[in-house]
Design a protein around this nucleic acid. Structure first.
Length: 416
DNA sequence: TCTGGGGTCCTAGGACCC
DNA sequence: TCTGGGGTCCTAGGACCC
């Protein structure tokens, strides 16, 4: 039996752990630049604030109902996520961490899995303060659907493939199924497939022929035949990227290069944190898709002579790419750096044939920098090219402190 | 005025091999 | 008139997820 455990309104719940005053109030967490609502409390959902709504479009609701708006604090959410997953891993044998706020579990049919799931849910709340929901099913797809039911009913739910449950599937829109997005939904509707039940009743080979193996799997999973096993071992990442929109249009090459340095700095750090190196960088810059300008997408792919996670190398290449594609007539709205072709940092590599040996070991600089930044906060020591100015940077007017990961902003408790 | 960031997987088609 | 068959690898683009 599979289960999907999912934290409720995760980002909002993380904030509430440290701000109990936000309980029972409409709260939204905003995306970078305080742009869109990316998490909503139930109260905010009830006000009709849709997922991803731009803040300027919902200002009237925010004002009228006194909605608490918070800038995103991914440092906090990442740390809370680790804590939640730790609770699961310490109390359940088979856990697949699926996303920042979700995990698939697998239970032996011989045990009382409803009871066990409830116990885990309770433990998560006890140890982290985060509320969650759980759904069970004989396949991951059905467990996902059961979880959605659980969210709306507030109790553990389970869906199997007995005829009794056909009515449940008949009440579920095909777009609510895991793996059916906007395009497939539209296309399936044209074929007269509106509900999860309709899709379950189609012929898997028809699904394969007309769509893909992905849809075929969904069809089979809906009818109770498991096609997606639990992945217990987390594979290392295949790509890592840092991309950000600016708080306004940028036409200054110097600023773009400064941004590239900052993103490169973070990218190299991420690579080192995951013990990986990259051999291919992809750097791009684009204008805003919302200002009626013709779309511009400038890009450069840089193949490195040997795998690296060296800050200086990555920043250098990223800035070179900017230098190469920069066009003074373009109002850049976003740039991004992606590391592709990742490999294990400890794997032996042949030295590049035409590269001159480096005079000293730069890796040591990164090591010292990482140690200092870990102790005193990210950015305490950073390359000069990252600059000081923050005027071009992303807007975050309502950011909450990193309560759990920064000594300077630890939560304060007063004892009477 | 103001519209996120970070990932994965699959497929079709082209280029190439013997 | 009639011109093979069976592969692999790579890439761009599309679709999806949270």
């Amino acid at each position: 039996m599979f289960a999907l455990i999912d934290c409720n309104n995760f980002f909002v719940s993380c904030e509430r752990v440290f701000r109990p005053d936000l309980e029972h109030k409409p709260v939204i967490v905003l995306s970078s630049n305080d742009g869109c609502a990316i998490a909503r409390s139930n109260e905010a959902k009830r006000l009709g604030i849709p997922m991803g709504a731009p803040l300027f479009e919902i200002r009237h609701l925010v004002k009228a109902y006194n909605v608490e708006t918070l800038s995103c604090n991914f440092e906090l959410y990442g740390d809370m996520s680790l804590r939640v997953m730790n609770v699961l891993q310490q109390n359940c044998e088979k856990v697949e961490v699926y996303s920042v706020d979700e995990a698939f579990l697998e239970f032996d049919d011989s045990i009382n899995w409803v009871q066990e799931g409830e116990r885990l849910r309770h433990l998560i709340f006890q140890y982290t303060g985060i509320p969650s929901s759980i759904g069970f099913g004989p396949t991951k797809t059905l467990a996902k659907l059961a979880n959605a039911q659980s969210k709306s009913l507030g109790i553990a739910c389970y869906i199997d493939n007995t005829p009794n449950y056909h009515n449940t599937l008949k009440a579920i829109q095909v777009s609510k199924i895991w793996g059916i997005g906007t395009n497939l939904n539209k296309s399936l509707k044209q074929q007269g497939i509106y509900t999860a039940y309709d899709l379950m009743m189609t012929d898997p080979s028809w699904a394969r022929k007309n769509y893909s193996i992905v849809v075929e799997r969904i069809v089979r999973e809906l009818s109770g035949f498991s096609c997606m096993p639990l992945t217990l071992i987390q594979e290392s990442k295949k790509s890592i990227q840092i991309t950000r929109s600016f708080s306004g249009p940028i036409k200054d090459k110097g600023i773009l290069k400064q941004a590239a340095a900052r993103y490169g700095f973070r990218l190299a750090l991420k690579l080192r944190e995951s013990s990986q190196k990259t051999t291919t960088l992809f750097v791009y810059g684009r204008n805003s898709p919302f200002r009626g300008e013709a779309p511009v997408f400038h890009q450069r792919t840089i193949v490195l002579s040997e795998p690296t996670n060296d800050t200086a190398v990555i920043i250098g290449k990223a800035q070179l790419a900017i230098e190469n594609f920069f066009d003074e007539n373009v109002a850049y709205h976003k740039i991004g750096i992606m590391a592709l072709e990742l490999r294990d940092a400890t794997a032996p590599v042949a030295k590049a044939l035409f590269e001159t040996p480096k005079p000293f070991k730069k890796a040591d600089i990164d090591k010292v920098m990482d140690t200092l930044n870990k102790r005193f906060g990210l950015g305490t020591v950073r390359p000069l090219s990252c600059g000081e100015g923050i005027e071009w940077m992303n807007k975050r007017d309502h950011k909450t402190p990193a309560y759990t990961t920064n000594w300077k902003t630890l939560v304060q408790v007063k004892a009477k």
